[in-house]
Simulated scan of single mutants.
Amino acid sequence: MIAQVVPVLFAFGANLGDRGETILAAQAELAATPGISDLRASPMRETVALTLEGPDPDAPRYLNAVAAAETVLSPHELLDVMQGIEQRHGRTRDLRWGDRTLDIDLILYGGRVVQDDRLTVPHPRAHERDFVLAPWLDLDPDAVLMGHGRVDRLLAALGDTTSPFDPGVSDAGADRCADGGAARA
């Protein structure tokens, strides 16, 4: 049986450590995974940390990106790959929406809906997150979020609080911020 090739969209976020290098390494690991091909990444964008209580300007800032790819893996096989990459990069799941070295979300899996105790696709909050929509729009100006419409219209309605990230600027400030220092990007 020939496996079906499915377009997918991943979202990446990190606010601890060398955020940019971690996201680039995670993207490279996904691209090198058997069953994943044609990974195309967006430019990275920076945002204020979002916690359960709302935006937290005192927390280390997040770096975010998205990547489109094609896969023959099932949604749950992808989830296992993503979680393995997160763990290799020091991800812990101590606090919901807490600081993290790496977060990888599966935003879309073709036109398929998945909803079980491990995975929900399309991602249930992607339409509310400028840090997903803005880099996605950078990658694909004609993007459409299944069930919600055009990404450019969603972002315009939501507002864009992200800013472009210059990879030439040192990312060491993220660690200093986590330690309570005054450095902010």
Rank of each mutant, 00 (worst) to 15 (best):
P55D: 00
A49W: 07
T33E: 11
E29M: 05
A26I: 00
R45G: 07
P34V: 07
A49K: 03
P55C: 00
G20N: 13
M44V: 04
F12P: 05
F10K: 00
F12S: 05
A11G: 14
I36W: 03
Q27S: 13
A41V: 04
G54W: 07
A31I: 03
S42L: 02
L39S: 05
E21R: 14
P55N: 00
G20L: 15
A11C: 04
L50N: 09
Q27I: 13
F10H: 02
A11Y: 03
T33H: 08
S37T: 12
A31Q: 07
L30T: 04
A41T: 06
R19N: 10
L24I: 07
E46P: 15
D18Y: 03
I23Y: 11
N15A: 09
L30Q: 08
G54N: 09
A26V: 01
T33I: 04
A32Q: 06
I36C: 05
E53G: 06
V48I: 15
A41E: 02
R45K: 08
T51Y: 05
L50E: 14
L9S: 09
D38Q: 14
V48C: 09
S42M: 04
P43I: 09
L50R: 14
G13F: 06
S37N: 06
A31N: 06
G54Q: 10
G17D: 04
N15E: 12
L16V: 09
G13W: 09
S42H: 07
L39P: 11
P55K: 08
G54Y: 08
G20Q: 10
G17Q: 01
T33Y: 02
A28C: 09
A14F: 02
G54V: 05
A49T: 08
L50T: 12
G20F: 09
I36Y: 04
G17R: 00
L9W: 13
T22E: 12
E53D: 12
D18I: 00
P55V: 06
F12K: 00
L24A: 09
V48F: 05
A26T: 07
G13S: 10
T51V: 08
E46L: 09
R19A: 13
G20D: 12
G54D: 09
E29C: 03
L39C: 09
A25T: 12
D38L: 11
F12H: 01
T51G: 04
A25Y: 00
R40W: 01
I36M: 08
L39N: 02
A32Y: 00
T22L: 14
M44H: 08
I36L: 15
E21G: 11
N15P: 14
P55Y: 06
F12L: 13
T47C: 06
A11H: 02
A49P: 12
L24E: 14
P55S: 05
P43C: 13
T33S: 11
P34W: 01
A49V: 14
A49N: 02
A14N: 00
A14S: 13
R45D: 06
T47Y: 01
E21S: 14
E29I: 00
T47L: 03
R19C: 15
A14P: 03
A41P: 15
D18F: 03
F10Q: 02
D18N: 13
S42G: 07
S42W: 06
F12M: 07
F12V: 10
I23D: 10
A32K: 01
A32M: 04
T47G: 07
A31E: 10
L24G: 15
